[in-house]
Design a protein around this nucleic acid. Structure first.
Lengths: 340, 340
DNA sequence: ACTGGCACTCGCACGGACAGAGTGCCAGGC
DNA sequence: GCCTGGCACTCTGTCCGTGCGAGTGCCAGT
């Protein structure tokens, strides 16, 4: 039916206009700005149908129409083409991220870059420990009974813990401990580290077993505990940019939720590196994110996302542009981390 | 003169009332809420003098008076007593910070705590590398020609760098390198590390010198480069709390300045651990901080501040309370880091 | 099936009136 | 000499009524 096709075209036009102007869009303006080949009156009829189907709504009688979450969803799924990044943007990504000196540097540059490209709030997750493997374990002696354990993962993440040793320890024991730990754990995926412990304890020299047991316990806390995932957040100033209408009430709950991190981390848990995940408004099923959309993707090799990154902004956002930016940055970050 | 005394009392009352009510305060309300022993008319005369002296100002004719930066300054310097923390607050600090597992944990808990206590934006600086010493250096082999250098400071900070080796390296060379580096640098203050390099290179076995030179160069970049100081920021949601009048225009420039970090770091550079530094409004000499005050103090032992922490908020803030909170948290953080 | 026309509905911006808060000043009292 | 009560004045924030413009829904005509 030519009908339906045009109706979708109308929806697309509404989304595009609303995103760029931030004003509810009326039939007349639509007819002027797009050549839909029909008159405003016809568009009005289409709009009435779209409204009945729940894709658009009017803030009040006799204002223009505004897309609903459902409308954005349809737009994202069916009506928008990927918008390739400009050459300038691609070059900005490279220039910005090259020269990073360590993991933290890569991630904090990424978050700034992403915030700048999308003009939204950007979030970047540290590589999850649960998908990393041990590259090296270091034991540093702080005092006779205190050791510091340093874990370096294959993704460049470094975690540290202080261990109170049950017995006094000398340098020789520390060296032995280091060798034992590394031969047992190096290369092992973190979630599987627990399996190695019994064997390790059995084969270790007797005089080290007590110490080893304590150290292993702390280590497992660090390794297996999945709660320790961290986020880098940037571009929160962008929240104050747009119209005050973008978020119901204030940006306060959103800022709080971002600082809490846990909400965002939960969303991040669902990403993979091959497809960009877009969650629109209510779909986020969290009060603080009402009126907000979340565009995210995993970074790392395709079959194994190390972590996620994305942007948070008002539902009224440039989805094609943001999706492209998020994907491009993720790809580049993936490359950088694969190298190091 | 009894005059002057009362006039200062009036200023104090104005500051207190304005901070708590957020409304310009008039002579009548002042007379009611404080027993100054004189009538509103007299207070008006005092106010006229205070205004002429530049301590207060009126937003517009026939509104109440509001303290100026100069007024707050006098209040902080002469008119306010330190407000001791409540028992509940002290206990909150302990409960909140005990159980921290590593440096990052201590600092991010501190920032949350401080934001919660003061209801302002909190900033905590990582211990500056320039005042830390090397506790341990670790070398991890990534591939034949790539090494990862891990620096652990006596303050618990961990920094990492990847080094491209000029020649292929084997495990044995790495072990030698590690020993050499540690015997040369362990215990050395970071800014003085550069002095050790020539000696190190002279005494090292010939076959290691090339590698050692490369590694040392990277190391010095990390150690001596003072730019690498980092901040943890929290409680930005508090910026959206107060009246919109708190900041001229929007909070945007302030948020941007906080994310930039550099402005705050410059201010942090001036703190020491014995006195709380209060910078009010214009004193900050930075556009983005107009209308904002910054309360900060160093943490660490008295004679050697490891880093700084503080809060940023509107000039209209509870100075005695915030000063007390900042000092208490700094003291506790100092203890925790001294132990570890 | 689309179009032009028309009556209708609202929200918003503009403007005048009004009340309230606060001031400055002055003359009188302790 | 300092303080006080009184008074006239100023200015803002608010409320209300009006007019305008945008946009809609519906209907008759092509």
């Amino acid at each position: 039916m030519a009908h339906d096709e045009r109706r979708l075209e109308v929806l697309r036009a509404i989304v595009q206009d609303y995103v760029s102007t931030n004003d509810p869009v009326g039939s007349k303006a639509l007819a002027e700005r797009h050549d839909l080949g029909v008159s405003p009156a016809t568009i009005r009829n289409d709009m009435a149908v779209l409204e009945e189907q729940g894709y658009i709504t009017q803030p009040h009688t006799s204002a223009g129409r505004v897309p609903t979450d459902k409308g954005y969803r349809l737009f994202v799924d069916k009506l928008s083409a990927v918008k390739p990044l400009s050459v300038a943007e691609r070059r900005a990504i490279e220039r910005f991220l090259d020269g990073s000196v360590d993991l933290h540097d890569v991630l904090s540059r990424s978050v700034r870059l992403l915030a700048q490209l999308t003009r939204q709030v950007a979030v970047v997750q540290y590589p999850t420990l649960s998908r990393s493997a041990v590259r090296h374990l270091e034991v540093v002696q702080l005092s006779a009974a205190r050791l510091m354990l340093v874990l370096i993962t294959d993704t460049g993440r470094v975690e540290q813990r202080v261990v109170e040793s049950p017995v006094d320890t000398d340098a020789e024991a520390v060296a032995e401990l280091r060798t034992l730990l590394n031969s047992a754990f190096t290369g092992v995926k973190l979630p599987e580290a627990g399996d190695k412990v019994p064997d390790l304890l059995d084969t270790a020299p007797l005089h080290l077993r007590g110490l080893l047991a304590t150290v292993s316990a702390t280590l497992l806390e660090t390794l297996v505990e999945p709660g320790e995932d961290r986020l880098v957040i940037g571009g929160t100033a962008n929240l104050t940019r747009g119209n005050a209408l973008d978020f119901p009430g204030t940006v306060r709950p959103l800022l709080e939720a971002l600082e809490e991190q846990v909400v965002v981390l939960r969303l991040m848990g669902q990403v993979d590196a091959s497809t960009v995940l877009v969650r629109i408004g209510e779909e986020n099923a969290h009060e603080a994110l009402t009126g907000a959309s979340f565009v995210s993707v995993g970074y790392g090799s395709t079959n194994r996302a190390l972590g996620g990154l994305g942007v948070v902004g008002p539902t009224r956002m440039d989805y094609p542009g943001n999706i492209a930016a998020v994907r491009a940055v993720a790809r580049y970050v993936g490359h950088l981390l694969a190298e190091s």
